[in-house]
Amino acid sequence: MKVRFWGTRGSLAVAQKAASIGDKIAAALVAARGRTFADVAEARAFAESELDFATFGTYGGATSCVEVEAGGEGDAFIVCDLGSGLREFGLDAMGRCARGHARVYHVFLSHLHWDHICGFPFFVPVFDPAAEVVIHSGHPDAETALRRQQEEISFPVAFDWLRANISFRTLEVGTRYPIGAVTVEMIEQHHSHLSYGYKFTDAAGKSVVYSTDSEHKIDKMDAETAFVGFFGGCDLVICDTMYSLADSISMKEDWGHSSNVVAIDLCHEAEAKRLALFHHEPTYSDADLQRMHQESIRYEELTRETAPLEVLCAYDGLVVDV
């Protein structure tokens, strides 16, 4: 399997400002210490090898959208959430369809909040009459949410004008669904109007969990046993790590999100192999996210008792081989 992160930001899409790009360029020039480069390729090689990620790159600012690629071109696309990252996924998918990929999209919605559905009106495949889009959700009101955001007061293109064959399917916790090239399971999560996490397992037994917008309540820590079971032995767990632990149990308690250290503890207990930090706080700069990533790696080291857990920090454009 491959996992492609098209949008990793939480709550609200953000963009780099001129000043932050200027800061990155200035830091890169200082790091180069007067070196000259024969061409762009040589300069890029220097930047990739010598600069930290927050200077050389960016974590991006599109909201939640993650593709799980399982099977081949004949199999359906699998997409988690319809955040603003969906726009770029849609364009890329159209290119792949032009080269022969099946025009079938299985979408899995964590929940219906705006940042997780706002990309749908800009999803080009829904204008493809040959496309089939199946929107899976634990929420029976998913169709209402998607239709409502395209009503005239909010958007100029009505849902009924879309050309693809779009259908909605409500899934249930506790059932294993064979869908496309994977088997899908779902877990209920604590969030306003509920949210759902998904586990995708391919024919080879590789598994990926997508668990975002999930608050692990301080007064219901026993409920974490279910998540440890759900994450058990997974090859990649994508977790909501929006806040510090202190924020998540103080000022931002009941905001529906979790922390890096709780995600690491759950993955440790579940003996998962890799964790991707996800649903990044929109006020965090690249430097903030890089620091959070480094601190998470250190926390994993400090609390590790068995096999190492690799801690990734998801960014828009990251591709992970599972």
């Binding site: 510090s244 632990l245 202190a246 924020d247 250290v261 926390y299 400090l302």
Partner: peptide, 15 residues
């Protein structure tokens, strides 16, 4: 030292 790091990483040293 380990606990100091954990308190800092979790921001518990702020609460």
């Amino acid at each position: 030292e380990i606990m100091r790091e954990i308190l800092a990483i979790s921001r518990y040293d702020k609460v």
